[in-house]
Design a protein around this nucleic acid. Structure first.
Length: 414
RNA sequence: GGAGACGUGGCUGAGUGGUUGAAAGCGCCGGUCUCGAAAACCGGUAUCCCGUUCUUCGGGAUCGGAGGUUCGAAUCCUCCCGUCUCCGCCA
């Protein structure tokens, strides 16, 4: 949630930044309109209640009651405007940092660097599904019969690769002090809203279990953030870093017909996620640190990738700055997004009310929260299959994963 | 699913209708003492909102959450959420 004070004080500035994120800046006029009405009423009510207390002190209960009735009426109205203000405010995205590249869509993203060599094949590389089916390790046909489209069975080495990737990421990140965690995959509306992940447009993307008033998370980020909901850290507890593992559920509404083949875009996948709680002055540096962790993991797998700085129009709702890592996928001949790395500054912290107390003056302030993909397992399996394939239709296993999988290559033994 | 207990400030924990935003202790911050530290002693120490101002003052809200009773609620009532204990069920 964006700071309402910022909207009041720097309306035009905020409007400009919201517009750069492809959100209608007039949303802010709505926020302010309700805010001003509410503030007027609030001032009025506060005065009245002061009066009521005066009457009570001199035991003039008759006037106290009259005042109380007046307050009750006015408060009902005020609450209505406060709700409307909040509803509008929750739809306002975080504002980007000043030096984020301006752009309206992914074409505005900037390549920061390209790392690793693209594989050179003296044959036509197959795509991950063809390889997966030939090797008997991915079955989307049966999954469609059982669960519908955009699901898969991972079998044999594909299943083992999943756990190898999880283990590799956990082992590497724990060396840097990340606390391992397996969070809930269901979340209540309150926490979800606070994290800025349940705006009206995002709701379409969520699985909702109405009977239990719960949503399925789209990422471990969604439940790791609220792990410290309504808490105040001591400054010396920060930075606090987690590495989490969870299944992720996405309805993929609005992406009909997009990436329908294989397991690149599915309704359910597993993901290792990094999450940091830091002091505001440290968040930009932390963001770079998380990015460096992501790159270290990609380099462990010896996969070719590039780092993108995401432009304003393509950024996430909660982000002040976002980097993506895109892995080269030989069958498509393109880089495809496999990782994302976001600094949400105090936007989510305000929503789920997470603060810290400064050692110097004991003042309390919102923390900054950051999240970053460790491995999106499914997409890493896609990248590995396509990049490590051989002419013989065998897929080699990246060195860093061989011990975890227990073999050096995948071939069909049927 | 059944029965019961409970939810107070950074923490522990008093408080059952009226200067209680809240005792006490711990912690934390500042000071005295000290070469320094510890101890001891003194003082301070919740968050949020609105207004005022320029950083001080005024008003208001908040004792899990939402309603209700009352002139007045941490305290009484209802519902919801959560935690714990016992029984049942279960990976």
């Amino acid at each position: 949630m964006l700071d309402i004070h910022l909207v009041r004080k720097q309306l035009n500035e905020v409007k400009r930044k919201i517009a750069s994120k492809n959100i209608n800046p007039r949303l802010l006029d709505t926020v302010l309109k309700y805010d001003e009405v509410w503030r007027t009423m609030k001032t009025d009510i506060d005065g009245l209640r002061g009066k009521q207390h005066e009457y009570e002190k001199v035991r003039d209960f008759e006037n106290a009651k009259k005042t109380k009735i007046e307050i009750d009426e006015k408060e009902k109205k005020a609450a209505l405007f406060e709700q409307k203000r909040m509803k509008a405010l929750l739809e306002v995205p975080n504002i980007p940092f000043d030096d984020v590249p301006i752009g309206s869509d992914e074409n505005g993203n900037k390549v920061i660097r390209e790392v690793g060599k693209k594989p050179v094949f003296d044959f036509e590389p197959k795509d991950h599904l063809e390889l997966g089916e030939q090797l008997g390790i991915i079955d989307t046909k049966k999954a469609a019969e059982v669960a519908g489209s955009r699901f898969s069975y991972l079998k044999k080495e594909a299943a083992l690769l999943e756990f190898a990737l999880v283990r590799l990421a956990f082992d590497k990140l724990m060396l840097h002090g990340f606390v391992p965690i397996v969070p809930p995959v269901m979340i209540r509306e309150e926490a979800f809203m606070g994290m800025g992940r349940l705006t009206p447009s995002q709701k379409e993307e969520r699985y909702h279990l109405q009977k239990d008033k719960l949503y399925l998370v789209g990422s471990a980020e969604h439940t790791i953030g609220p792990l410290h909901m309504n808490e105040i850290f001591d400054e010396k507890q920060l930075p606090l870093r987690y590495v989490g593992f969870s299944s992720c559920f996405r309805r993929e509404a609005g992406s009909y017909g997009k990436d329908t083949r294989g397991i690149l875009r599915v309704h359910q996948f597993d993901k290792v996620e990094m999450f940091s709680f830091v002091r505001p002055e440290d968040s930009e540096e932390e963001h770079k640190f998380l990015l460096s962790m992501q790159e270290a993991l990609m380099q462990e797998l010896e996969l070719p990738y590039r780092v993108m700085e995401i432009c304003t129009g393509d950024m996430g709702f909660t982000d002040a700055r976002q980097y993506d890592i895109e892995c080269f996928m030989p069958a498509q001949g393109k880089f495809r997004e496999t990782n994302s790395c976001s600094n949400t500054t105090d936007f989510q912290a305000r929503g789920v009310n997470i603060k810290y107390r400064k050692t110097s003056d004991q003042k309390v302030e919102f923390v900054h929260m950051l999240n970053a993909t460790g491995f999106a397992i499914g997409r890493m399996i896609v990248a590995i299959l396509e990049n490590y394939q051989t002419k013989e239709g065998i897929v080699r296993i990246p060195r860093a994963l061989q011990a975890y999988v227990g073999s050096k290559e995948i071939q069909n033994v049927d």
